[in-house]
Write a protein that binds this DNA or RNA. Structure first.
Length: 645
RNA sequence: GCCGAUGUAGCUCAGCUGGUCAGAGCUACUGAUUUGUAAUCAGUAGGUCGGGGGUUCGAAUCCCUCCAUCGGCUCCA
């Protein structure tokens, strides 16, 4: 009897019932059969050698398919487990999934020491086992037999997994001397794994719960070709060079100091310039969009955070309070309550709405010490914050305008890869995790969703991740080295204004509670500049570059003219420096290139005589000579165009 | 906070199992040189080897502890 197999190109072929995907691959081409790792049968990824019993659609997965990679990495995790068990008999395994780059396995070493120094011998053992081309053998087993098997081995972890599995469809996989409870699928045999790198070892809580004991998590990655591993390692090296902590140090953007404290960044002069430029951009953009700027203190009394409802939920993330005149004061971890107080003072009528209060507010959050990470996770942060108070009728338009602002910023910064993470509520948790107002949840979520759809913004919807007071959108971006960041956040709040008793007088002369939109398109200076450092690898667009022009006199004789040029640049708000060291021009150029200064002006006898400058552009080389004023006009125009994107 | 690792001049790093181990390059400073598109030469200066305690005749090197950083976990802008 034959079955019909439909391939991705919609062609159909007939095979005897019970043919395996591998046999089908061989029938198509030898080359394909050599490269195929797993098969997608009717949408389910499966082992290649499992017989196919009915008419099916079939996709043969290779290394170029994400699912092909995952299958290989999952199998690699098993291979690693086998190597680990060889050296550390009796250790217990939790789970070993494939991840974005490679795989890990969580291991309980039962008190035996294991460190990064031991990775090499495991790698070598894995290579040895891979060469044996041991088949991954799938075996269906009843739940009872499985429980017996793992009880006998005293494996509480696999028993825990089993307790959540239904009888039927439970499978074991064995390769060489290692057997694991596993749903599969796997590659046919270990010989497919040609290059192995165990990247690091770390602790991880069992079931990701910090109340549970820690297991040892070992990360690794494998490839079907040695050359691909080399490429991957080179890529990691490159990523290291773009790390914002390294660039930030090299370019003197920021630093930390033991005496100041962990997570409290000091912005060096170059970082100060970037902050000034970002704030200038934000203020201008917000001014045009009808925002009002306010300023609020860095602390407030305990009572305000009780009113806002932040204290009970947020106390652990706030710095401990300071006692003063018999009162407790907290450093602010968010600007919202202060802004709410301002709204209240304004006592507006519906004719005054929307009211948009903006502030680059400084907040302090007591992040756990292990969470601090360069500029990305800090304890003092300045947020591009604003709160928009509007009526229900105004909400969609206001929300859309906020989105437009996000998109403008993405253009200015050349951010092409982004996703909006739209977090909604979970109906069954109304009244617990979420404010109990189903109509408003539905209404605001529908409006937000519609704005996202209308503006054609890529987004993913995540249920049960909203704030307690409303749905929110987090902007996910990816830095050039592939690190994912939540850059900015945008939240709808229909609850806290009520807690503060915020009202406006509507057209019927009744008091009504406004909806509040929290938004911070540029996130915080800390995280945003951290992101920009990696995004641009320090090669900032000229408007943002701490130093825009380096003036390089050929010899000391021209230092005077160089200073004159510098003053002209400064008069036109262009940031420059004269390199008047007693060095040769080649050296000065080299140093300016390394510092990634966008423009270098080489100045000698000819330039001084002609009131000109010789322009060299970073990364592009000699651009010829220009009259000074022409250069200034060109730079000013370039800056304007970048900001008007 | 938890698991693991690391911490030597402003920067990048040597310094193996305790005894000329306090070093190199870059930077900075001084002098010579006065230079045309990615490194001129020479000299000088710089560190109680993260802090504190201990073991030892002797510790950057071994032990304890604290701090910070890094890789993860948890958490998040």
């Amino acid at each position: 009897m034959n079955i019909k197999i439909t391939l991705p190109d919609n062609s159909m072929r007939e095979y005897p019932k019970g043919s395996s995907a591998m046999e089908i691959a061989k029938s198509i081409s030898e080359g394909l059969a050599r490269n195929v790792l797993a098969a997608k049968v009717n949408g389910e990824v499966r082992d290649l050698n499992r017989p196919i019993e009915e008419d099916s659609s079939l996709q043969l997965l290779t290394w170029t398919d994400a699912e092909g990679k995952s299958t290989m990495w999952h199998s690699s995790a098993h291979l690693m487990a086998e190597a680990l068990e060889f050296y550390y008999p009796g250790i217990k395994f939790w789970v070993g999934p494939p991840i974005q780059n490679g795989f890990y396995y969580d291991v309980d070493f039962g008190g035996q020491a294991f460190s990064a120094d031991d990775l090499k011998k495991i790698e070598d053992k894995m290579a040895e086992l891979a060469k044996q081309s041991n088949a991954f053998v799938r075996k269906e087993i009843s739940k009872g037999d499985a429980v017996n098997y793992f009880t006998e081995r005293g494996d509480q972890y696999k028993l825990d997994l089993l307790s959540n599995l239904e009888d039927g469809g439970i499978t074991l996989y064995t390769q060489g001397n290692f057997t694991d409870l596993c749903r599969g699928p796997h590659i046919p045999h270990t010989g497919y794994i040609k290059a192995i790198k165990l990247t690091n070892v770390a602790g991880a809580y069992w079931k990701n719960d910090s109340n549970n004991p820690m297991l040892t998590r070992i990360y690794g990655i494998t490839f079907p070709k040695k050359s691909e591993l080399d490429e991957y390692l080179t890529m990691l090296e490159e990523a290291k060079k773009r790390d914002h902590r390294k660039i930030g140090k090299d370019m003197e953007i920021f630093t930390f100091d033991d005496d100041v404290g962990p997570g409290l960044p000091l912005w060096l002069p170059n970082g100060g310039v970037m902050i000034e430029e970002l704030e200038r951009l934000a203020k201008k953009t917000e001014q045009r969009a009808g925002y009002s700027r306010v300023r609020t203190p860095h602390l407030a009394k305990e009572s305000m955070y009780k009113t806002s409802g932040h204290l009970p939920y947020y106390e652990d993330s706030m710095f401990p309070p300071m006692e003063c005149d018999g009162e407790k004061y907290y450093l602010k971890a968010m600007n919202c309550p202060h802004h709410h107080k301002i709204f209240k003072e304004l006592n507006p009528s519906y004719r005054d709405l929307p009211i948009r209060l903006a502030e680059y507010g400084t907040c302090y959050r007591y992040e756990q010490s292990g969470e601090l990470f360069g500029l990305m996770r800090v304890r003092a942060l300045q947020m591009n914050d604003a709160h928009i108070y509007c009526t229900k009728d105004q909400f969609a338009e206001e929300f859309n305008a906020v989105n437009e602002m996000y998109l403008k910023y993405f253009r200015v910064f050349g951010i092409e890869k982004y996703v909006m993470r739209f977090s909604t509520h979970a109906p069954e948790k109304l009244g617990k995790k979420y404010v109990d107002n189903p109509e408003l949840w539905k209404q605001t979520e529908d409006m937000v969703r519609q704005v996202l759809i209308d503006s054609n913004i890529p987004y993913i919807e995540v249920p049960d991740e909203g704030a307690f007071y409303g749905p929110k959108i987090d902007v996910q971006v990816w830095s050039a080295i592939g690190r994912e960041f939540t850059l900015a956040t945008n939240q709808v709040d229909f609850a806290v204004p009520a807690r503060f008793g915020l009202t406006f007088r509507n057209s019927n002369n009744e008091m009504e509670t406004p909806i509040c939109i929290h938004r911070a398109p540029l996130g915080t200076h800390e995280r945003f500049i951290g992101f920009l450092l990696e995004h641009y690898a320090g090669n900032f667009p000229i408007w943002l570059a701490p130093q825009q022009v380096s003036i390089l006199p050929i010899s000391e004789k021209f230092n005077g003219y160089a200073k004159k040029v510098l003053q002209l640049l400064r008069n036109s708000d262009i940031r420059g420096l004269v390199d008047d060291r007693d060095e040769k021009i080649g050296k000065k150029i080299r140093d300016a290139e390394i510092k990634k200064v966008p423009y270098m002006l080489i100045i000698g006898e000819k330039e001084e005589a002609e009131n000109a400058v010789s322009v060299r552009q970073h990364g592009k080389g000699d651009q010829g000579s220009l009259p000074i004023q022409e250069f200034i006009d060109r730079v000013s125009k370039e800056i304007q165009e970048l900001l008007d994107a």
